[in-house]
């Protein structure tokens, strides 16, 4: 199945070097193959959506790239080089940043503290450089969410959208080259969702590659260039967004069949 991935790379890209490749990744929990021999890749300035039902393995696959849960086997290549990623720190040194669905913020710490958590700026004497961190945070937040003012309050008291801004600011500030976004708009209202979509477009233009995990088929079709569909830990296939319909992608998610395997009856059954 994995050999079809290359066939669906957008034309003109096939010769380029992928920014990131996951090759034959396997992750098991006990006897369960959460991710079973999955290969996906990502080119600069591209959004690849990972879709699939609950438990399809898309988040687990991304955890391997993020270092949150290392793969049991398989290879990760970044810029044409094989890399080892054992923990989140390794991932960051390779320019991989993650925006987790649950945002992974320390609730009692303020925005700047969270943006720089684990990578604090220090003065010459080794103490925290709170001023530098606050001004850098202000700068990056101004770009994401111009109305963000509560730099000094614990992020616990911020709204969902503001917390999201902090999580994104953390990824953006450190010049991510590969960004993993896990359901980035799930907790947001319409206005904030629009901001996140705008941001994704902006990041693409800067040449950042984005893996987008999403349940929202409209988000996926609006934002992604390619769509990788997973079901029960396996890759059903990767398709070019412009070459498929939403129904065909739904058929991939629900029936686990690639578009060329899908019959008109299948589609009829899905849409009835």
């Amino acid at each position: 199945m994995t050999d079809t991935t290359d066939a669906t790379v957008p034309a003109g890209r096939a010769g380029d070097q992928p920014l990131c490749e996951l090759r034959n990744i396997r992750i098991s929990f006990g006897g369960l193959h959460a991710v079973d021999d999955v290969s996906v890749n990502l080119y600069p300035g591209e959004v690849v959506a990972l879709v699939g039902g609950n438990g399809a393995g898309k988040s687990t696959l991304m955890h391997a790239l993020a270092g949150a849960h290392p793969a049991d086997s398989g290879e990760i290549w970044i810029n044409g080089q094989p890399v080892t990623i054992h923990n989140p720190r390794d991932a960051r040194t390779h320019g991989v940043e993650v925006i987790y669905q649950k945002l992974a913020l320390a609730d009692n710490i303020d925005a700047a503290g969270n943006v720089f958590l684990g990578r604090e700026l220090r003065t010459k004497t080794g103490s925290l450089d709170d001023e530098a961190m606050a001004s850098a945070t202000q700068k990056v937040l101004a770009r994401l969410n111009p109305r963000f003012k509560n730099l000094k309050t614990a992020v616990k008291s911020l709204s969902g959208g503001q917390r999201q801004s902090v999580a994104i600011a953390r990824a953006v500030h450190f010049n991510a080259r590969i960004l993993i976004m896990d359901e980035p708009t799930a907790a947001l209202g319409p206005a904030e969702t629009a901001q996140v979509r705008e941001l994704i477009t902006q990041l693409k233009a800067e040449g950042i590659g984005i893996f987008l995990i999403s349940h929202d088929i409209h988000d996926v079709f609006d934002l992604a260039d390619r769509i990788s569909v997973m079901a029960q830990g396996q890759l059903v296939g990767t398709v070019d967004k412009n070459a498929v319909t939403k129904d065909e992608v739904l058929a991939m998610i629900i029936l686990g069949k690639r578009p060329e395997e899908t019959t008109p009856d299948d589609i009829a059954e899905l849409t009835s």
């Binding site: 989140p88 684990g118 925290l128």
Partner: peptide, 18 residues
Amino acid sequence: RHIYAVGDDADAAALAGI
């Protein structure tokens, strides 16, 4: 700061690379 972060949310701290 890491002492606070670990007590606040150990999972979040770990994902932040602590």
